[in-house]
């Protein structure tokens, strides 16, 4: 196997094409849940978990259900339903099995269904790793890796942002810019910093 390629996928998903700051996926939770560090961490962890497993399930659905029957055009509808059902199942299982974890992460789980980063990563996986010249093993591992690393990148951006916003609360921001607008401007500066990662490869 080509380890360099996997390394490139990982670096690219976390830094170069960071889902929030470069690809603009998952902005709603990014702005909504990043006021404090603790919820940002909880949301990030929930997203990593759901993203990785959704990447896994949708890969199987696409490869063994949609492609053999020539139903690729049902991709969007199939993926969003799979993700919605899966998120619901996770919520129920978590409430039953680990009430402590549910209290910590539970409120973020339903929000994830409409987090475009999750659907985004599964669609990107299909676009990037279902080409003729790719083996099944590579496509599977690459999809999982990209889903997991996209989650890591999401959490990284959330954590950085929440740290900045906690301090921002104490500063004197012009009234019209207070709250959401200044958060976007901060995000813009962060995204500029992340541009520095582009071109970085193995």
């Amino acid at each position: 196997m080509d380890y360099g390629k996997f390394m490139t996928i990982a670096i690219s998903a976390i830094f170069i094409n960071n889902f929030i700051l470069t690809r603009f996926l998952g902005l709603c939770p990014f702005i909504g849940v990043s006021k404090q560090t603790k919820p940002a961490l909880g949301m990030g962890a929930a997203v990593i978990f759901v993203m990785t497993l959704s990447g896994f399930i949708t890969w199987i659905v696409y490869k063994y259900l949609l492609v053999p029957f020539g139903l690729e055009y049902l991709r969007t509808i199939a993926f969003i339903l799979v993700i919605a059902v899966f998120v619901q199942a996770v919520e129920m299982a978590m409430a039953k099995l680990s009430p402590a974890l549910y209290r910590a992460m539970g409120i973020y789980i339903p929000l994830i269904t409409t987090n475009c980063a999750v659907l985004g990563v599964t669609v990107l996986n299909v676009n990037m790793f279902f080409k003729k010249d790719m083996s099944i093993g590579f496509s599977f591992i690459a999809s999982l890796l990209q889903a997991f690393c996209a989650g890591i990148g999401f959490m990284l951006a959330m954590l950085l942002m929440s740290g900045i916003r906690e301090r921002l609360d104490l500063t004197d921001v012009p009234q019209s810019l207070a709250g959401i607008p200044i958060a976007f401007i901060v995000a813009s500066l962060m995204s500029m910093a992340f541009l520095g990662f582009s071109g970085f490869k193995f």
């Binding site: 690219s12 170069i16 094409n17 582009s198 071109g199 490869k201």
Partner: peptide
């Protein structure tokens, strides 16, 4: 013929 170059982003 097809050709693939490794660009800056992909």
């Amino acid at each position: 013929i097809p050709a693939i170059g490794e660009g800056y982003s992909g």
